[in-house]
């Protein structure tokens, strides 16, 4: 489902960061934006409320470089995590090539993680997609919380079949951020030409 621009010799991929409200999706993108050198990134666009909650989406274009004569680019998006923004969330999933599900390690957010995954499945179904059809990486964020739940417990509610690669993260410090993005990018690229 990547978008190929033969005239400009570009291949573009859309990667969406999904997950419950305040799990750290925007923090992931901000960290990436801060660390990727100039020339390899475009402007970061954030459509947020005054208190910095994502209202529609965040957007960050990254330039991987030229591969076999094709400029290869990733467009990173976040969705608004808050439950009542589902209409917006659904729109962002259109044409998605890969997903990072950012789960929250806080004990009080276990249910929100599960509900967000269920919501993602429902929204993907509207586009005729199943989670199983897409590259998905699970990032268990906020591992620095003193009462962080075991990773296995978070995994048990969002991915009981242990289908997705898992990365632990502290996105505010950048821990696990690049590792997660690299894995989802690798999985997305692995599908090029094979589908």
């Amino acid at each position: 489902m990547s978008t190929i621009n033969f005239a400009n010799r570009e291949i573009n991929f859309k990667i969406v960061y999904y997950g419950p409200g305040l799990s750290g999706k925007t923090t992931n993108l901000k960290w990436i934006y801060g660390k990727i050198p100039e020339g390899r990134k475009g402007e970061m666009v954030s459509l947020a409320t005054e208190d910095e909650r994502t209202l529609f989406f965040d957007f960050l274009p990254l330039d991987l470089g030229e591969v076999k004569g094709f400029k290869t680019r990733f467009h990173l998006y976040t969705v608004p995590g808050q439950v009542f923004y589902n209409a917006s969330r659904k729109l962002i999933l259109r044409g998605v090539d890969g997903i990072v599900f950012v789960a929250d390690s806080a004990p009080g957010r276990l249910r929100a993680n599960a509900e967000s995954m269920r919501n993602m499945r429902e929204n993907l179904a509207e586009y005729g997609l199943k989670v199983e059809d897409l590259p998905v990486v699970l990032q268990v964020n906020k591992r620095d919380l003193p009462d962080a739940l075991p990773v296995e417990m978070v995994q048990a509610v969002v991915d009981p079949e242990k289908r997705f690669p898992v990365f632990e993260a502290v996105a505010t410090e950048g821990k696990g951020v690049f590792e997660t993005l690299k894995e989802v990018s690798r999985l997305v690229l692995a599908r090029v030409g094979s589908t």
Partner: peptide, 23 residues
């Protein structure tokens, strides 16, 4: 739709660039 024939070489080269960009 045009058939895009990108082979394993594409994926290998792209992977090398991922290493370069993300470590």
């Amino acid at each position: 739709p045009p058939k895009l024939s990108l082979d394993t070489q594409y994926r290998e080269e792209a992977k090398a660039l991922l290493d370069e960009l993300f470590g």
